[in-house]
Design a protein around this nucleic acid. Sequence first.
RNA 1: GCCCCCUUCGUCUAAUGGUCAGGACGUCAGGUUUUCAACCUGAAAACAGGGGUUCAAUUCCCCUAGGGGGUACCA
Length: 478
Amino acid sequence: MSDKVITRFAPSPTGYLHIGGARTALFNWLYAKHTGGKMLLRIEDTDQARSTEGAILAILDGLRWLELEWDGEPVYQLARAERHREIAEQLLAEGKAYRCYASAEELQAMREKARAEGRAPGYDGTWRHRDPSEAPTGIEPAIRFKAPREGETVIEDRVQGRVVFANKELDDLVILRSDGSPTYNLSVVVDDHDMNITHIIRGDDHLTNAARQSQIYKALGWETPVFAHVPLIHGSDGAKLSKRHGALGVDAYRAMGYLPAALRNYLVRLGWSHGDAEIMSTEEMIEWFDLDAIGRSAARFDFVKLETLNGHYLRETPDAEIVRRLKALVPELPDGAALNARIGAEGWEKLERAMPGLKERAKTLVELIDNATFLFAKRPLTLDEEAAKLLDPQGRDLIAQLLPRLEAVEPWTLKELEASVRSFAEETGRKLGKVAQPLRAALTGKSTSPGIFDVLDVLGREESLARLRDQTAVIKSA
RNA sequence: GCCCCCUUCGUCUAAUGGUCAGGACGUCAGGUUUUCAACCUGAAAACAGGGGUUCAAUUCCCCUAGGGGGUACCA
């Protein structure tokens, strides 16, 4: 065994890969890369009632999309149950665990009593010393770990520092259920040991578990890995992360048009920092990341900052790559199939040509494609029916004259469009704003969408901006 | 209830026993752009409260308040 760092990401497949899990994975990945070690993946699927195949796939996909590749094959915890049972039996044989015949009702009563007396609620150790001959018949016992009764258990956590638990607060936990299945705390210890995990980086909701697990490591005579319990992510209201506040699967972030690099950059700065560095490449993250710089307080999730970061990365991304990502994303969008058909092969080319003007104005891929709809207008260009209703006869006439001219512009880059509309306005002696505003409404059927047409909208600034706004308002309310 | 953790601008955070408490997002005000976006400049904005320790505390200690996590034969 070398001193090479081995971390692991160990999600339970009961849902999508949520944003907190993504950050945990990122931290594990970064630390492994930083130290030249490995990050393993373990699927904790022992809760068979809640684990699903779909969730497993979602997690694997999510990690791949985020470009956080794990080393080796994923380990499935359920498949290792026999090994866990073996260790439980070993503990039993060594007198470090015992059979417990207490019923669910008895346990419930025990907890209530303890709580009423202001003590730590937990198993009272009834069967710890009782003779097995007193065992009731017809009841399959669970196996409980003999937790130390005296003294304290200390966790030297790389993030939380020295955390001390009085052993009397920690009861004799079940390690093997009466149906013979191992419980979480046992499985985790055995797996982490067998996988040679050196550093356990996970959410701080596991801090108490660390104490119990540490006791099991000691009983087994195994070396305890380094712990690093990272604070959780909260919603923008400071409470537990809810769906409304970002507790979505990473697939949802992909669908909203975020780039993996942006999400990684956002996530890494949540609870960790490196001086004043805000925007950093993956290489820099790997170089700078360290456990000791992780903060101890929970961070609130901020969509606005994520968006800003995403806008930045969008601008940095080569046009061809954006198109590639868009091609993958569009079919997943609501109405994506229709949009995809409308774009067509030609549309993708136009899109790439128009990209310099587009990517500068969008925060997400979804916003970008939304702003680009004018590119995919059906030829010959016609007035959108809905929009036509919003225009007065003069406006309709104007559009009728303009459309054929735009028809000739190929492809539609921002510059070419601008030039075309500008010359039309000059030739006809009209104000640009008066031309552009109805044009946008005419082609997109939308009068409020911000985007490239806004550029055209207000080219004729001589016409006051306020006037244009009013115009928009009128169209909107019509 | 009990145990554990946390608390610097609205948000993410930096730093320090003596600083004008720094940066970023957002906000506001300008600049640039015949608009928008992007970009640039500037401004407002924080040490939760109370006790100590100290010549000196945002920084060290204690208490309170608030927030979070845990408290299962879930993970």
